[in-house]
């Protein structure tokens, strides 16, 4: 800057962007939680999405409001209308002084099946426009067990870089030291309420010793949830083994190709020896036109990574539910003995 002592204009400040601190916490308002739950629950089991509005303050991303999207339909005209809807809604909300910066989107999921290519693509789309965005995932199926299944996710930076170049070969992944655990980053969620709301809630609803949440948690039967979970887990295992087979096939082809190459080079060498003995020019040891030298395309590892993520998610859920069941069973035992 030419004159550092002069007051800097807003534009200049904006231009000299400092290195953004990493996103540590997503601070979400109770209002947003209720809105998300209402939208997701009303349309369950259809999966729905909506937009999150808020502010990006240092390492905290504040989510202060949100609005739902209409259910998407495969029609271009309606899609254009959807974009209009979004603009209209943003404009309207701005008029009543709601923060109208998009900070990401929310979506519902069933049994935690959210690790899909679509999610990654949506994320990449958002990321292009907003530097920092987050995806909040709510699972209505788990709320019946008294768990508030809210998760804030983002893609890790190294994964995004690879995805942009569409480079999921084994070599690249090894170079970046990226494994399936590193695709999604979960960000801790903080809940905040305005003082007014907090007063209202305290005033309206006295502390009750037992809540619906407790009833849900202490319900003995959890088998339908576990059953569905296991079904999905098995499905995923099948997918994974199909992926693995693809790789095996690929490696078999590669080794076969290498053997062929070896044989070809061997043959060429002996030929060259013979030519040398006869006093002729040796032929080159490589022949790019030969099909056996064409490198085989390596299948992308993205799918298997996602499936692996999914499986580990199911395992976590099963562990969680089993843990809960244990405590419930021992509780029952204690009660019975009393």
């Amino acid at each position: 800057m030419a004159n550092p002592s002069a007051p800097r204009s807003f534009l200049q400040v904006a231009a000299t962007e400092e290195v953004a601190p990493p996103l540590r916490v997503v601070q979400i308002e109770g209002l947003v939680i209720l809105k998300i739950i209402k939208h997701c629950k009303e349309f369950s089991p259809t999966l729905v999405t909506g937009q999150l509005l808020g502010l990006d303050v240092g390492s905290v991303l504040e989510v202060t409001n949100c609005f739902p999207f209409p259910i998407r339909e495969e029609d271009e005209e309606i899609e254009a209308e959807g974009a209009n809807y979004q603009l209209e809604m943003m404009r309207c909300l701005r008029e009543v002084n709601v923060d109208n910066n998009t900070v990401g989107w929310y979506q519902s999921t069933l049994f935690g099946r959210y690790q899909t290519v679509e999610l990654i693509e949506t994320f990449m789309n958002y990321q292009e426009n907003i530097r920092r965005c987050v995806c909040i995932i709510y699972d209505p199926s788990r709320s019946n067990q008294g768990v508030l299944a809210l998760k804030a996710l983002k893609l890790s930076d190294s994964f995004m870089e690879l995805y942009r170049n569409n480079n999921f070969t084994g070599e690249k992944l090894r170079e970046k030291n990226l494994s399936w655990v590193d695709i999604f980053e979960e960000i801790p969620i903080k809940v905040s309420n305005s003082a007014l709301i907090s007063t209202f809630m305290t005033e309206l609803e006295a502390d009750s010793p037992v809540t619906q949440c407790d009833y849900d948690r202490l319900k003995l039967s959890s088998s339908p949830f576990v059953e569905r979970n296991m079904e999905f887990l098995i499905e995923c295992m099948d997918d994974l083994s199909a992926e693995q087979q693809k790789f095996q096939y690929y490696y078999r082809n590669v080794s076969r190709q290498q053997a062929q190459q070896q044989a070809w080079v061997q043959k060429r060498r002996s030929e060259n020896m013979a030519r040398k003995a006869a006093g002729e020019e040796p032929l080159p040891e490589e022949d790019p036109s030969n099909p056996i030298f064409k490198p085989l395309p390596e299948p992308s590892r993205l799918d298997s990574f996602l499936t692996t993520n999914q499986i580990s998610n199911y395992c976590n859920q099963i562990n969680g539910v089993a843990g809960q069941s244990f405590s419930r069973l021992y509780l029952m035992k204690a009660l019975q003995e009393n």
């Binding site: 601070q27 109770g30 939680i33 209720l34 739950i37 209402k38 709320s143 008294g146 508030l148 903080k190 809940v191 905040s192 309420n193 305005s194 003082a195 709301i197 907090s198 809630m201 305290t202 609803e205 809540t211 619906q212 949440c213 849900d216």
Partner: peptide, 14 residues
Amino acid sequence: EAERVGFDFLKKQS
């Protein structure tokens, strides 16, 4: 509905 979420989330300021 609020009960299902848990009042603890909705009552406190943070």
